[in-house]
Write a protein that binds this DNA or RNA. Sequence first.
DNA 1: GACCCGTGGGC
DNA 2: TGCCCAAGGGT
Length: 347
Amino acid sequence: MRVDAVAENLLIWYDAHRRRLPWRAEPGAPAPDPYRVWLSEIMLQQTTVAAVKPYFDRFTTCWPTVTDLAFADEAEVMSSWAGLGYYARARNLIACARAVMRDHGGSFPNNEEELRSLPGIGEYTAAAIVAIAFGRRAVVVDANVERVASRLFAFAEPLPAARPALRRLVDRITPNERAGDFAQAMMDLGSGICTVRSPKCMLCALSSDCAALVQGSPETYPMKAARRAKPRRRGTVYWIERDDHVWLIRRPGKGLLGGMRALPSGPWTDEDPGVAGAPMPACWSDAGTVSHVFTHFALDLRVLTTRWTADVAGGEWWPIDQIEQAGLPTLFARAASRAIADREQER
DNA sequence: GACCCGTGGGC
DNA sequence: TGCCCAAGGGT
């Protein structure tokens, strides 16, 4: 394979077919603002472009610069992230913005080592920022790039063990110029052409160099180690209502849905505690069950509702007609919808 | 290296 | 429908 030809062909294809995205510079324009590149890269971690777009627009409108974000109200940022998932990203986002303010004078560092030391920025994100925002050569390897490279070289060692070797292969085909465009081109190719299932090899700019295509089964790459089965857990959330308000708590800062506003709930285990685990001895009514799938377990969550007149400790009464502004993660938003639907039915 | 951490789309 | 997957990072 002519290693140089890969980048040449890919960049020619990219110049004609690149996606227009809100965080990208227009063709021929200077590199985009590092803040916008950073923000988009954090949001895009394990998250689709379609899901990110509205969040990116909202964040850049509310907080146009990293300084604005550094001085933002934490609860407001967390609520604005609600629904996007992986909430540690939002906690790290705030911490990172403040570190850029405090330690770097409000400007993102332009090298991978310093970027890597910031919260939420790992190997991939540091390389992407350096290449895309600062126009420097960096080896940018995400899941798209791994897939394209594993097919290009018909590299059969399964992930994740194959990662270091795949990175060396990507290093070989990364050009000295336009490394940022090259990285984004690899992602566009992986997203639209060199897809997980049914890759469109007839449309691929790299097909003439693709070893997996010669073998006849590019879709079998990359190989992956077997994964564990997903357990199912059960639990209960409690909808506590008083004068058109509902009782909301804030979850602990770490762990699942950490730092997010939520409905109070018992433990999520094999056995559902039900009424026995309720926060107060009330008369509970069953509003049904919502099912939700997390990364490493599935959950059936029963929704119990009650009316309450006394005070409760450790939370806040939230107006039910403004529940969508509470910034509830999707699981609790769905539980709330279930409770509200049940409540409307009572009337 | 293994495990934890959300969500929605596609087939 | 259940399973796979996604512009990963932290511990």
